[in-house]
Amino acid sequence: EQVGNAADESALFADAFHVFDPQGKGFVLASDLEGVIARLGQRVTPDELAQMISALDGGKTGKIHYQEYLNMASATVMQQKRAFSAGEVIFREGEASDYFYLITSGRVRKLTKPPHGYAHSQWVAAEEELSVGDYFGTSAILGSGCRHSTMVAVTDVQVVALARDDFEFEGPPPRRRLSERRGGRFSPERSLRFINMMTNNEPRIFGAGEVLFRQGEEGDTMFILKSGRVQVSLVSSDGRKHIVGERGTGECCGETACLSANPRNCTIACVSDEGCETLCVSRADFLELVRGSWDVRHDLIALSERHSREKERRVNFMRTRDEVCGGFDDEDVLA
C-alpha cells in the first residue's frame, strides 16, 4: 500500500509540474512561472521572479529542473501531510474552517445537508465520494469561515493540508463593492481566482468590437476578463437594443447560461481599443467547481443573480423612458 501511495503522490507532483511546464521541457523558466502567476490574477516584478527561481535553482542555471521541484514538493508534503483512519470524521458541518485538503491516497465521503428551503439545492449532492487528486474544504481559502459539509474517511486516507496563506500573494487586496464588504461572505473575486487555478482554462484574445458571444447562443463557456472592458447588451421582445452596462478586469460573463443550461440572455462585445484578454472556462469545469464547493456555488449564483437584476432594472428603465419619450434604441441615444 505504501508503494501505491508513493505512486499516487508522484503522479500528483507530475501533474502539478505540467501546469508550469506544459511543453514537457523538464524545467521551468521565469517566463513559465510568470504565466501561471498571471493566470491567478497576480503580477510580479522581474526581480521577484528571479528570487522565486533562485530559491529552488540549486545549480544556478536560471531554471527549476523537475528533480529540484520534486525535492521541494516532497519536503512540503511531508510537512503538511495528515492521515485519517477509515470511519474517522475529518471535520463536521458548522466547525470553523482551518485547512483545505488534497487527497493523496484513499477515499473520503462528503455529506452535505442544504439549509431548509435552499433555492439552489439542485447543485448540492447529499452524498459524494472523493478519491486521489480530489480536494475538499474550500471554505478555508474562500473566506466563508465555517464548514458546510461533514467529511468522513471511507478508507485509510492521507491528505495534504493547506492553509489560506498557501494561496495568498503579497499585494493590495482586490477592490470590492460596498455591498460585498457589508455582506461578508460574497467574494466573487476570490472564487474567480480559485476557478482560474483549478480549471484548464483557455486564454482567448478579442479585438475592439469583436463579440465574445451573442444573445440566444448556447452557453457552453464562461469568460473571466484579464484585461480590457466589455459591453453588455440585449435585445428586448419588441426588437430594440438595450445597453445594460460594462464589465472590466477581474469580472466575468457567461456564468448564467452555464448555470441554467439556457441560451445566452445577452450579447457581450469587447469595447476596449487595445482589445480584451480573457480566460475561457468550459461549462463542464465550471459546474464541477460549483458542485464541489459551497463557497464557489454561493458566490457564482449570487453574482449571476446580481447580473440578472442589473439587466431587469435596465429594461424596466427603458420601458418607462419609452412611455415618456417614445421608443428608440440605446445606440440612438449614445449617437
Rank of each mutant, 00 (worst) to 15 (best):
G4A: 08
C270W: 10
H148K: 14
V211G: 09
T150N: 03
A14E: 14
L33Y: 06
V271W: 06
Y66P: 01
D329E: 15
F20L: 14
G59K: 15
V315R: 12
C276E: 08
F317K: 07
L130S: 00
Y99Q: 03
G254E: 00
D295V: 07
F169Y: 11
A6R: 09
S308T: 07
C252R: 02
C280V: 15
F286L: 07
V152G: 03
L130Q: 00
P188T: 01
D21E: 09
S10C: 10
V230Y: 12
E68W: 06
V290K: 08
V44C: 07
I90R: 01
S121K: 14
L300T: 10
F194V: 00
H65E: 14
R185I: 02
R82V: 05
C258P: 00
N71W: 06
F186V: 04
V89N: 06
V28K: 02
G216Y: 11
N262K: 13
S121A: 15
G248T: 10
G254T: 01
E1T: 03
G292D: 11
R92E: 14
F136L: 01
A302L: 04
G62H: 12
K25Q: 14
K81L: 14
T256G: 00
P114R: 09
H18R: 15
V211H: 09
L289E: 11
K110Q: 01
H18T: 14
R283H: 05
L212H: 06
L287V: 04
T278G: 03
S97Y: 08
F223K: 05
R264K: 10
E305D: 15
R297Q: 15
R182E: 05
A140C: 05
Y69T: 01
M198E: 02
A96I: 07
Y101K: 03
D238R: 12
D156T: 04
G245R: 12
S105G: 09
P203D: 02
L111G: 00
P22Q: 08
R182A: 04
D134S: 02
A119V: 04
M318G: 03
E288C: 09
D329V: 04
K311M: 12
E288K: 15
R264W: 00
S10P: 00
A119Q: 06
S179Y: 12
R182S: 02
T320A: 15
G228C: 12
E34L: 13
H242A: 14
D332T: 15
T112C: 06
T256I: 11
T320D: 14
F194E: 02
K81E: 14
R177K: 08
E93T: 06
P173S: 11
L300K: 02
Q51Y: 13
L289H: 10
A208G: 03
V235E: 14
S144Y: 09
A73E: 01
L212W: 08
G171T: 04
I141Y: 05
I141P: 04
D15F: 06
D220Q: 13
A6T: 08
Q80C: 11
H307D: 00
K81H: 09
M318R: 13
R314L: 03
G26Y: 10
L287A: 02
C276M: 15
W294P: 01
R297D: 09
